[in-house]
Design a protein around this nucleic acid. Structure first.
Lengths: 349, 349
DNA sequence: CGGCAACTCTACATCGATGTAGAAGGCCCC
DNA sequence: GGGGCCTTCTACATCGATGTAGAGTTGCCG
C-alpha cells in the first residue's frame, strides 16, 4: 500500500481505469457488495490503495439523500452540563457511525427557531434539540419534516420523540434529602417567576411537593429568582437571600452552576457548609466532585439520555417503524451525596 | 409567504417551473447574481416562498467542491478548557458563515492520526486541530493535503499554520507571581517526565527559568508528575506531594483542572490557601472565578486563539495567498490574580 | 446609424457517486 | 438440451445544484 496522498483529485473513474473495471464495480467493492470475484476485488483494492482513493462524501450524500450527520443544538458549550452532554452524544453517535454537528443557540429564542428551519438542516439527517426558550406555544415551529428528538421538559407531548428526566420527582428527592438531614428553612435558587414549563417550574414544583408532604409551609421569601443558570447569577441570588435576613439552613440550587455560585458566596462570607447551611445542586457536572466542599447533587443519567436520544433519532432516520407514535422516555436519576450536605461523612472522591 | 414545509422534495426545477424561468435563473437569484430584472427576481422569490424551497446543500457542495464546514479536533469536550475553546471557535466560525464539526480524540494517539486521514476530512474544507499526543516525530502524518491550522505547542515548525501561546513565558510569569508573593518552595503539578515538546515540558521550563533567575534551586522533589490533566490526577498528585513531607508554600498547577484538584485536597486537609500554600493555575476556565477560594490563573486569550485560527484556516481555504509560508501566531496571555494567591486583597468577582 | 458594451436569461455539461436494468457465462435439473 | 437460476460485471440514468458559453435585447457613443 503505497501512500499517494492526493485526495484532491482521485475519483472512482481513475480507480476503475487502473483496475480495468467499470466504476460501478469500484463502487460495489467500496460498499461491500457480495457478488464480486475475489481476484477482481483484490485488483480494485490494490488500485484504491495505490491511488490513495477516498470516497467523495458530497457526491455520496447527494446520491443517497443521507449525510450521516446529525445536528445537536444546545445553548452553550461553555456551560459544563451541555459540554458534558455533547461529549456523551458525540460518543454515542460515533458508536453508531454518525457524525455530530453542534449548534449553539445561546438560549436566544430567535436562534432556537433558526435552528429548526435553518439551512443547516439540509446538511444533517436529523436533529437532537435541547431548547431553553421555546415552549408549548411554539408547537407549530416544532412541527418539522425531518427526524428530531427533543431533550428536556419544556415541550411535553410535542410533535417529536422526547427524552427527559423526571424533574419533579428528582427535585422532590433532592428536597427530601435536605429534609432528612433535619433542615427546615430550605432556600431555592434559580426559580423563574411565572414560568409553567421548563426545568425551573418543574423543579420548584418538586420542591413544594416535598415540603407539603412534610407538612411544612412554603415561604416565598426563600424562593430566589435567577434567570440565567450560571455561576454568577447563583452567586448574586445567594447574596440577595442572605442580605434579606431571612433564616436559611439549606439551599437547593436548581442546577449545579447556581449551587456552585452559592457555595462561592457562602465561602466568602465564612458561612460553614454544611454546618450552618447545606447545599444541593442538580446535574452532577464533573466539577461538583471537586469543589470545596464537594457538592451533593442530582445525577440525571447523562449517558442514558445521550444514547437514548441517538437511538431514537436513528430509528426515525431509518424509518424502522414508519408512523410510530412519538416516544417519551423518562430517564433515571440519582442523588449523589457529597460534603455540601453530608459534611465529614461524605464518601471520599 | 405561505409556509409549505415539505423540504423533502422541492428542487430548483419546481421553483423554476412555477416562476416560468430556467433553473439557472433560480440559482442566480439564490446566489445574488446581479444581472436579474427586479420583476424576474420577485417572481422567483415568490415561488421560493410559496414552495418553501431550500437549497440542497449536498448538491451544492458537490458542485462547488466546498462544504462550508470546518473540523475541530479536540481531546474531549468534558474538559472545560476545550469546551470553552469549542464555544469560541463555533462563534468565530459562525461569524464567518462556517459550520463546525467537532471530533473528540480522547487524547488517544491512534485517534489523533485517524482524524488526519479519516473519511470525515471529505466533509470539511479544513481542520483546526489541537493534538495532545502527536509530536514532531509525526511530521509526516501532519503533511496533509487540505487546509489545517494547529493549536498548541506540540508541533513547532510543522507543515501547517500554527496558533499557540507563549507557554514558557507565561509559566515564567506565573512562577514569578508566586515568587513576588515571597513564596520559595513552589511545587509543580502536571509535569510529564521525559517529555520535551508539549505544554507540560514548556511550562516546566518556564518554571525553572523563573527560579533560576531568582537564584533559587530547582528541587526535583517539588515537581509532581500527572499524565492526564484532570481534576482527579491533580488531586492525587497534590496528596502525593503532601504525603512526601516535602516543604511547600505554593503550587503551580500546569492547568486549571490540576490546580482545582489540588485546591480540593488542600481544603480537605484544612490547609489554608493562600495562607499556608498559594495556588496558581493555567487556562482561566470559567470555573476558576467561582471556586473557593477563587483561583489565580493564566488567561491564554481564548477568543484570540479561536478567531486567529479560524481566520488563518479561512485564508488557506480560499487560497488568498497561495504558497504563503506557514504562519506561526503567538497569542497574548495575562495573569489573573485571585484569592488563591492574593487572599483577601483579591479583586471581587 | 453602425458598433460595442452592458444586461438578462437560457441550454447544456458537469461535479462524483449509486440505483436500475440487463448482458453474459456457468451450472443444475428435469 | 432447454429453461431457469445464480454469479459477475457493465452501461447509463440520476441525485440537485452551478459553471460556461452564448443568444437576444437594450442603450450609448461617435
Amino acid at each position: 500500500m503505497s501512500t499517494a496522498k492526493r485526495g484532491s483529485a482521485v475519483t472512482m473513474h481513475e480507480v476503475a481505469a487502473r483496475a480495468g473495471v467499470s466504476i460501478k464495480t469500484v463502487s460495489n467493492v467500496v460498499n461491500g457488495y457480495q457478488y464480486i470475484r475475489p481476484a477482481t476485488k483484490e485488483r480494485v483494492e490494490a488500485a484504491i490503495a495505490d491511488l490513495g482513493y477516498q470516497v467523495n462524501l458530497s457526491a455520496r450524500n447527494l446520491r443517497r439523500g443521507r449525510t450521516g450527520i446529525i445536528g445537536l443544538a444546545v445553548p452553550e458549550l461553555s456551560l459544563p452540563y451541555f459540554a458534558e452532554l455533547a461529549d456523551s452524544v458525540i460518543r454515542a453517535a460515533d458508536a453508531r457511525g454518525l457524525t455530530v454537528l453542534i449548534e449553539q443557540t445561546g438560549s436566544v429564542r430567535e436562534r432556537e427557531l433558526d435552528v429548526l428551519s435553518g439551512q443547516r438542516r439540509h446538511l444533517t439527517d436529523g436533529l437532537i434539540f435541547s431548547p431553553l426558550e421555546l415552549g408549548p406555544q411554539d408547537a407549530e415551529a416544532l412541527h418539522v419534516d425531518y427526524p428530531m428528538v427533543l431533550l428536556g421538559e419544556r415541550i411535553f407531548g410535542g410533535p417529536a420523540d422526547h427524552v427527559t428526566m423526571n424533574n419533579v420527582e428528582a427535585a422532590r428527592a433532592a428536597t427530601q434529602h435536605l429534609l432528612d438531614l433535619g433542615r427546615r428553612r430550605i432556600a431555592v435558587i434559580g426559580a423563574h417567576e411565572g414560568e409553567t414549563v421548563g426545568s425551573a417550574a418543574l423543579r420548584v414544583q418538586g420542591y413544594r411537593q416535598a415540603l407539603e408532604e412534610a407538612g411544612l409551609p412554603v415561604d416565598p421569601a426563600l424562593i430566589g429568582e435567577a434567570g440565567l443558570w450560571h455561576r454568577a447569577t447563583g452567586a448574586e441570588t445567594m447574596e440577595r437571600l442572605l442580605d434579606s435576613g431571612v433564616e436559611i439552613d439549606a439551599v437547593f440550587g436548581l442546577n449545579d452552576a447556581l449551587a456552585l455560585g452559592a457555595l462561592h458566596v457562602l465561602h466568602a462570607r465564612r458561612i460553614d457548609v454544611p454546618g450552618q447551611i447545606a447545599v444541593i445542586g442538580f446535574d452532577d457536572i464533573e466539577e461538583t466532585a471537586y469543589s470545596s466542599p464537594t457538592l451533593t447533587t442530582v445525577a440525571p443519567g447523562r449517558e442514558q439520555i445521550a444514547t437514548t436520544a441517538v437511538d431514537l433519532l436513528l430509528a426515525r432516520i431509518e424509518e424502522l417503524e414508519p408512523g410510530k407514535p412519538f416516544a417519551q422516555v423518562i430517564t433515571d436519576f440519582e442523588i449523589v451525596g457529597r460534603e455540601s450536605t453530608l459534611g465529614e461523612q461524605a464518601p471520599a472522591v
